[in-house]
Simulated assay, not measured.
Amino acid sequence: MFYNDFKNKALNEHKKAEDAYERIFKSFIRHCKALYKWRVKACSTIDLILILINSIANKPKDFEIEIADVRLEKKTFHETEEYSNKAENSLKLTAFGTTAGVSVGTVIAIGTKSALSGPIGIGIGAGTAAVSLLKLSYDNKKIGNKAMQEAIIIRESIQELKVFNERVISIRRKIILLNLKLRVYCIFMNRLKDANYKELSEKDRLRLGTLVNNALILTHLINEKVDSE
């Protein structure tokens, strides 16, 4: 049949593109879940720091301001987390021929406003698009052209999703490193619990200042979205 080879080649390319998209999509979801777990762990570290700082008497005003910002960032995360839990029960993503619920970690990572936009909202399911193409027309050339066009769109989305994936991995690494550093630092600084700031040495005052500054950085990372750049 005329253009039959072209049609078959195009449908084969379409299937390859879908399979590649499915692999990167699953990787993206997996990394989002891992990022979410570390964000929760980081919140527990922030709690330890807040307990220590709150126990210090006669803290400088700058501390109070930064601690207020830390609390605000932490509150923002929990509010987003609560919203995302509700979204997980209502939002749906169609991918790879199946309907998958939006995970809390994914919604938080990409930003709740864009939960159904971008590459993960492409709506092309594995196996389904190729079948629908066959229903469009028996014209091999039209079927082949349509398959090739969609394959190009899918591969463009793959590249975009790869960028998102790298951002998720990058944010998670930053959180892991800073969280572990602050955990150790907080244990070391816990000897200052219930101390009077005015009676502390200059070194200990600087150490407390560093702890507060890094706590604020960590809370910013907790709320950072992959589409924020």
Rank of each mutant, 00 (worst) to 15 (best):
N179K: 12
A34G: 11
K41A: 12
H14Y: 11
Y197S: 00
K174G: 13
A215F: 03
N179R: 10
E229K: 14
S103Y: 05
I158W: 03
K86M: 09
I51S: 12
P60N: 00
G144W: 02
N12I: 00
F63G: 06
A129F: 15
S27L: 09
I65A: 11
Y83Q: 15
I108F: 03
Q149W: 08
E13V: 06
N4I: 14
G111N: 00
V102F: 05
D62R: 08
I154Y: 01
K41M: 13
I217N: 05
F6A: 10
N54V: 06
L72V: 09
N165M: 12
E150H: 13
T98R: 15
A95D: 05
V212F: 04
S114Y: 15
F2S: 13
S27A: 11
R207F: 12
A129Y: 13
S27R: 10
V212S: 02
Y83P: 00
N4A: 15
K142Y: 07
L180F: 13
K9L: 14
H14N: 10
I143M: 05
E199P: 05
K174Q: 13
Q149P: 00
I24F: 01
S117A: 10
A147F: 02
E18F: 05
N12Y: 12
V104R: 00
V102Y: 04
R183E: 10
A115P: 06
R155W: 12
N54F: 06
E66W: 08
L48E: 10
I175E: 00
I153C: 09
L134F: 07
E88V: 02
I110Y: 06
G209Q: 04
E199W: 04
A42F: 04
K142Q: 08
D139E: 13
H31L: 12
D227K: 08
N140V: 05
K33D: 07
S55K: 09
L208R: 04
F2E: 14
T76I: 15
D62W: 05
V107H: 02
K37M: 07
I153R: 11
R205F: 03
F2P: 13
M189G: 01
L216M: 03
G101C: 11
C186H: 08
K33V: 06
N58L: 01
N223F: 06
P119T: 00
K162T: 08
N145Y: 12
N165I: 09
K174R: 14
S27P: 02
I122Q: 01
A109P: 02
E88D: 07
E64I: 06
P119W: 00
D227R: 09
D62N: 09
D47Q: 12
G144T: 04
